[in-house]
Design a protein around this nucleic acid. Structure first.
Length: 857
RNA sequence: GCCCGGGUGGCGGAAUGGCAGACGCUGAGGACUUAAAAUCCUCCGGGGAUUUUUCCUCAUGUGGGUUCGACUCCCACCCCGGGCACCA
């Protein structure tokens, strides 16, 4: 080998050259392509597909590096690994860029895809590129339309009026992220966004609410607990009852239905409160003396729904409607109010206010002087508190329920002041009251969910057209399957103003009715891009199928996903929608499993200066620059080494040098011995014939292998695995020159293990070293090495000796030495002995080969 | 307000209840070199004693507890980050 070196390294390690060389070989040998093969165990590892925008930065790279390590480790373990990649290619940024630069969104998108792909290839990720998909291609989105039609047939897709953000200057609908500074248009920062009601398409996620909740149990242990929890809260199951309160003295008025989880507190209800916007509130106000005033208040309350973030801190406000409702249990007449803290979109849009047992109700009632009546008492401690408070305020008053309650008592307890239910425990009261309400026909048990149906309509161009048409004769008609895909018109007018782009494209809008052949108009909404990402991982199984979204047999082989990896930012929406889609596909008979991914890993963010990398902050570390400077392997290694994968990682330009130096060190080590060992067979010497040096090195190597194997399989603590490999490397260096006392075959064994352990993380370097060590078949044909348990065993250990739990010294003994023997040595130790002098040992804790603790008095 | 994470040297971070600070970065020193870079080796939490060696002591956000022994388990609190939020 020549003395040629690249500047500044002092070694022959040239990542640019090596990386290109091996990427080419891998491609030629089709190493990462995998197909259905029932004779082999399969492993499907998937990273969340990226939205191709801007530059690919180290945040992306971290995600893909983790996935790639897993894919490569699994391959080495003999699995048939599917590891695909694709593009979440529809979406608003492309449309905005197109408006700004007067180009087509496709142009911008494809340019970015090409760029992303180039950089991902540069990093040597082991993707099966034959499976690449791009969601903006008709070959893909036609199946979005196909799924939509299936849902439409099953009543899972429907239209209803719904609120959107509307900019009066743009005359268009804004996405949530286009609403800035707490309610202003992103382009007209002086213009307040309005809330408008328009017809929109929804998918009935609520039809699967119960299953989405229940099946979370199947993900226990495989998904991060907090993601499961976030999903559970999002679904928000709440069991309770709906109860109707008749409106007193108003002929023809509908009764007011309230939802409550605490029907047992109904005797303590001192008002009924409606949400602003409740269908009854204007009706109740008719002929009310306070009408004019009330109308103004109502109008104001209805308007405030735009500023969501203020809701939390907003003062509770309300007004009396002048009407009364009848408590169906007690017959009592209680006032009907309107209150801004009651939500129209949750429950029935009306509540009964029980101030003694709900903190919000208490605040409201206190503000407006409504009475507070205790109807549940705690069984023990809490009841004392209530009594004390009550007696203090109303010295000696009987339990009238008029105590001045400081804080709402929300726990279960015993019913009081509740007619025939007094004295019963809360659970029993709930059951009896619900039964009674059902029997009398004014209420029933009910479970409600916080989860809402998924609004998929977007008034945008760059998305999947919703495949329905509107005909004056036949009303709404689904586009038949044979007419799919409904293609996006190639030349839209994108201005960002006025009606949606598709609506202003006559050649798209005007069509014929598939039923009657008469003139008809196409639906001009496009689908939310979460639709694309809800099932893309199924398409990877069969990316070019033009008869179906995918072949069921192929999906049956590859699914469920064994390991899904992505950011915590998608903990709710993407994953919930994917789970929903999976259940719908199961009910369509396409698949048999209930959950798409059995294991989920959420990696931490890559930060710079304590904040996430983003273009606007200007702290982006481009992946390509990184590869240019140090090579892909160093970049990969550093992202794995700097922090455990689930934690946030602070990018440091200084620290990465360490990873670079380490790889150089490994390269030089192998380079130095390659000539001497390339022709011998690697074989670890048996302990009996091994020299002292050999023993030290082989033990260290196999101990490292043992722990690294574990780290890769269970803990995924790549950072400590790398630390161990560094230690091994340092250990080998310390025994140099190896020519003295280490046989060639042992040297080869050591260097091979080192290479194989690095292979999943720094694959290019590992391939190069493997070749230098005399292998011609490519490292990809090598399996993960097995460690030799006998070689990992130490024959001597240093046992820490504690006196009263404090470390006082160490004794060196043979493995398996008895406690008595260790104690004898400890007593004789010059440092330890003084701590025992004049004291007697009352207890001895001895953990063989680990520790001796002498408790003295 | 509620729910999750997290708090360990100058920095990133290691430690199935058993030697706190592995490994790396930074810094210091030495070797090599005409020199520099690179490389190789050594040292690197605070305080104290002893002065070539060691030893003692404090130290994992704070205060308690459990234990022979706690970064690790329990209770209370403080701080930082994230998510959710008037959900009846």
């Amino acid at each position: 080998m020549t003395e040629q070196t690249i500047p500044g390294t002092g070694s022959g390690y040239d990542p640019q050259k090596i990386e290109e060389k091996w990427q080419k070989r891998w491609a030629e040998a089709r190493v990462f392509e995998s197909d259905v093969d029932p004779s082999k165990p399969k492993y499907y590892v998937l990273e969340m597909l990226p939205y191709p925008s801007g530059t690919l930065h180290m945040g992306h790279m971290r995600n893909y590096t983790i996935g790639d390590v897993v894919a490569r480790v699994k391959r080495m373990h003999g699995f048939n690994v599917m590891h695909p990649m694709g593009w979440d290619a529809f979406g608003l940024p492309a449309e905005n860029a197109a408006i700004k630069n007067n180009t087509h969104p496709r142009e911008w998108t494809n340019k970015n895809i090409a760029e992303f792909q180039r950089v991902l290839r540069r990093f040597g990720f082991s993707y099966d590129w034959r499976r690449e998909i791009s969601t903006c291609e008709p070959e893909y989105y036609t199946w979005n339309q196909w799924f939509f039609l299936r849902m439409l047939e099953r009543g899972l897709a429907y239209r209803k009026k719904s609120r959107v953000n509307w900019c009066p200057k743009c005359c268009t609908v804004l996405a949530n992220e286009q609403v800035v500074n707490g309610g202003y248009c992103w382009r007209h920062e002086d213009t307040l966004v309005e809330s408008r009601e328009i017809e929109q398409w929804f998918l009935k996620t609520t039809a699967y609410a119960e299953q989405l909740l229940d099946d979370l149990k199947q993900l226990d242990g495989g998904w991060p607990e907090r993601v499961i929890l976030m999903q559970r809260n999002w679904i928000g199951k709440s069991q309770g009852a709906k109860v109707r309160f008749a409106v007193a003295d108003l002929a023809g008025a509908e009764p007011i239905e309230v939802f409550t989880t605490r029907i047992d507190t109904i005797y303590g209800a001192t008002a009924v409160i409606l949400a602003p916007g409740h269908p009854l509130d204007s009706k109740l106000l008719e002929a009310s003396p306070a009408r004019v005033e009330a109308d103004a208040k109502l109008a104001k309350m209805r308007q405030t729904s735009v500023k969501a973030e203020d809701l939390a801190t907003m003062e509770k406000e309300g007004f009396f409607t002048g009407r009364y409702a009848t408590n169906p249990f007690s017959g009592e007449k209680i006032p009907i109010w309107v209150g801004n803290f009651v939500l129209m979109e949750y429950g029935t849009g009306a509540i009964m206010a029980v101030p003694a047992h709900d903190q919000r109700d208490l605040e409201f009632c206190r503000k407006y002087g409504l009475p507070v009546r205790v109807v549940v008492e705690g069984k023990e401690v809490q009841s004392l508190k209530l009594k004390v408070e009550g007696e203090k305020k109303l010295a000696g008053a009987a339990r009238t329920g008029q105590e001045a309650v400081e804080e709402a008592f929300t726990d279960y307890g015993v019913s009081v002041n509740s007619g025939p239910y007094s004295g019963m425990e809360s659970e029993a009261t709930i059951a009896k009251m619900t039964a009674f309400a059902e029997q009398k026909g004014f209420g029933r048990a009910e479970t409600i969910f916080r989860l809402k149906d998924w609004g998929i309509s977007r008034q945008r161009y760059w998305g999947t057209p919703i495949p329905v048409v509107y005909c004056s004769k036949d009303d709404m008609v689904a586009v038949p399957d044979k007419d799919l895909p409904v293609l996006l018109p190639p030349n839209p007018k994108l201005t960002g103003m006025g009606e949606s782009p598709l609506a202003s494209t006559p050649e798209f809008v005007n069509t014929v009715c598939p039923k009657c052949g008469g003139p008809a108009r196409r639906e001009t909404d496009t689908m939310d891009t979460f639709v694309d990402s809800s099932w893309y991982f199924y398409r990877y199984c069969d990316p070019h199928n033009d008869k179906a979204p995918f072949d069921s047999a192929k999906a049956a082989y590859w699914f469920p996903i064994d390991q899904y990896i992505g950011g915590i930012t998608h903990a709710i929406l993407h994953l919930l929608y994917s789970r929903f889609w999976c259940k719908v596909m199961r009910d369509l008979g396409l698949i048999k499993h209930n959950e798409p991914a059995v294991r989920l890993f959420t990696q931490g963010m890559v930060q710079k200066g304590g904040v996430a990398m983003s273009k606007s902050r200007g702290n982006v570390v481009g992946a390509e620059d990184m590869a240019q400077k140090y090579g892909a392997d160093t970049g990969r290694l550093y992202t794995l080494f700097a922090a455990p994968p689930e934690k946030d990682l602070e990018w440091s330009e200084e620290s990465i040098e360490g990873s670079w130096r380490f790889l150089n060190r490994v390269y030089r080590l192998v380079e130095r011995h390659a000539q001497a060992v390339r022709r011998v067979k690697s074989r670890n010497a048996c302990a009996a014939t091994a020299s002292r040096k050999e023993k030290i090195l082989l033990r260290k190597a196999h101990q490292t292998l043992q722990r690294v194997t574990q780290d890769f399989e269970t803990r995924w603590h790549f950072n400590s695995a790398i630390a161990l490999i560094m230690e091994l490397t340092n250990g080998i260096y310390l025994q140099e020159p190896l020519e003295e006392g280490v046989r060639q075959e042992v040297r080869k064994e050591l260097l091979e293990l080192l290479t194989l352990m690095l292979a999943p993380m720094t694959p290019h370097l590992a391939e190069e070293l493997w070749e230098m060590l005399g292998h011609t078949g490519g490292l990809w044909t090598a399996g993960w090495p097995a460690f030799d348990e006998a070689l990992t065993r130490e024959d001597e250990v240093e046992i820490p000796v504690q006196v009263n739990g404090r470390l006082r010294g160490k004794v060196k003994v043979a493995v398996g030495t008895s406690g008595d023997e260790v104690e004898k040595l400890a007593r004789a130790d010059a440092v330890i002995a003084p701590h025992l002098a004049g004291k007697s040992i009352v207890k001895r804790i001895f953990v063989p080969d680990k520790l001796l603790n002498l408790v003295v008095a």
